[in-house]
Nucleic acid binder design. Structure first.
Lengths: 192, 192
DNA sequence: CGATTAAGCTGAGGCTGCCTCGACAAATCT
DNA sequence: AGATTTGTCGAGGCAGCCTCAGCTTAATCG
């Protein structure tokens, strides 16, 4: 049996430093920020960065893991509570999430059919939450009959993209309008 | 007074070749396609490309000029005709337009406050068309009272972005939903 | 048809960024 | 301590951006 060794202390330290610097860099310059710059600021050679994260996606994925987990908890809560504006809350939360690093939404959208990364899994799970929220809302008569989970995915992706390139307000407005468009055709007493 | 010379024939030829190659490259690889590759395929040194087009934006702008003109003609026609689905037609046309080169929508959105380029002017004019269409539709009672031209701009930008990163269908769906959301709150006899 | 001259062309070179890989260092284990 | 494995280092190859000093060559003039 492979009685594996304890991981090296310096390795763990470098890993943490890289994550911290990457987070700062991605927040400031978007997901395309220079990896060499990140390594340099982490006080580590470029090869070390690649040792820990074979590619950019892996690095982004590692950074997103915790954040994603929180999002899923919110999703589960919303599904359980069945609040009328659950869908609204969800869409805005995901949009906000996807806007933390510039270019993140595009990166995710581009690589959806990619190799099995944790990013991929997370995307699927997010889609699933959207699907469930739509199903509930539709049963409650709050949505038009042809509304789908894909509509929610589309909307959040679009809003996240706008969040980066136009203003947060524009993204918010688009969400409001599209959700209004998802309402049943012959009006009901939805808010606003 | 400066009796200026006739422009050199080779210069004009190179200009045309560069445009042709750039169009092909941008269609295939998006607006970030390699400029050196374009120059090479045009049978011209990289310096020549930069001689004609000091930066990427200029090159894209030159390619878009004709296309934009056509779009504006459509816009004028739509405004004149006052057809009920003018807004719908317009949004879809602009979206289609912005999707010819991958990344175009982002490029335009990023550089709206940039130096005075013809791109900038075109964007303003497009916004203006949207504004007018909204005004007409609202007077006709086809739109909710708080609808603005900015909403149209937002929508087209978002749809164009989706067109690239997800599917054309997704973009189309978003347009449909958002336009539905722009309808008056207490239903009328809109199509679909 | 030269000669003149300005417009235009060229491509090496400096820079940044991506990523790999063989040589090296050091932490762990015995 | 010595052996072993794990991790680090950074030069180097590649591609793309952009500039600029020197060179061509097309247009013009006599």
């Amino acid at each position: 049996m492979t009685t594996s060794r304890r991981p090296r202390a310096d390795a763990r330290r470098n890993y943490e430093r890289l994550l911290a610097e990457a987070d700062a860099a991605f927040r400031g310059g978007g997901v395309t920020a220079s990896l060499e710059g990140i390594a340099r600021r982490a006080g580590v050679a470029i090869g070390t960065l690649y040792g820990h994260f074979p590619n950019r996606r892996t690095l982004v994925g590692a950074l997103l893991r915790d954040r994603n987990e929180q999002l899923f908890q919110l999703g589960d809560r919303l599904i359980a509570q069945q609040s009328p504006d659950a869908l609204d809350t969800w869409v805005r939360a995901v949009t906000e999430h996807a806007a933390t690093y510039g270019g993140l939404a595009v990166m995710l959208a581009d690589g959806l059919d990619d190799e099995a990364s944790e990013l991929h899994a997370s995307c699927l799970r997010m889609a699933d939450v959207g699907e469930q929220l739509v199903a509930h809302a539709r049963k409650a008569g709050a949505l038009r009959l042809d509304a789908t989970g894909a509509d929610v995915t589309t909307l959040t992706t679009a809003a996240a993209s706008l969040h980066e390139h136009l203003s947060p307000d524009a993204a918010d407005r688009l969400i409001t309008l599209t959700l209004a468009g998802l309402a049943p055709r012959h009006s009901s007493e939805r808010h606003m």
